[in-house]
């Protein structure tokens, strides 16, 4: 997966800030201790990567299911722009022409990349001033 980022080695890139409500994500990740935070980052990374891959599938139903699942997940982590994009996409997948779908999937996957970047940085805890 091109967009997938190793959550352990990579730092938080600047471009993520505009895509995700970082405070919402931090609040979410702080639901337990440090171990849970790390485990959650790893699981979220796996889930977003899995769904990103599913969007490339030829089967329309697989893409529709993935976009629906992605919508709930993106909203939960505070990825507002991704949520908006997938909300537009979800429900209309079946009727979209193949080329249009490809373009939209590309845009969604770029946004997933931004979320993955942020998750990679978030694993170590919020930045302190």
């Amino acid at each position: 997966m091109k967009t997938m980022t190793d959550p352990i080695r990579n730092p938080v890139p600047a471009r993520s800030a505009s895509s995700v409500d970082a405070r919402a994500l931090d609040k979410l990740l702080d639901i337990g201790g440090a171990d849970l935070r790390a485990a959650l980052c790893v699981q979220l990374t796996e889930d977003f990567s899995r769904l990103s891959a599913a969007l490339d599938d030829d089967c329309t139903q697989t893409v529709a299911n993935a976009s629906h699942e992605l919508k709930g997940l993106a909203a939960t982590v505070g990825a507002e722009r991704l949520t908006d994009m997938v909300s537009t996409f979800d429900g209309g997948v079946q009727t979209l022409p193949r080329e249009a779908r490809k373009v939209m999937v590309g845009a969604v996957q770029r946004e997933i990349g931004a979320v993955l970047d942020l998750l990679a940085g978030a694993r170590q805890g919020p930045k302190r001033a």
Binding site: G32, L36, L40, Q43, L44, E46, D47, E69, G72, L73
Partner: peptide, 16 residues
């Protein structure tokens, strides 16, 4: 719930 990370989040909130 079929999304593993959401499972973790909800479970953590309820366990807490």
């Amino acid at each position: 719930e079929d999304t593993p990370s959401l499972q973790m989040i909800y479970k953590a909130a309820l366990t807490r």
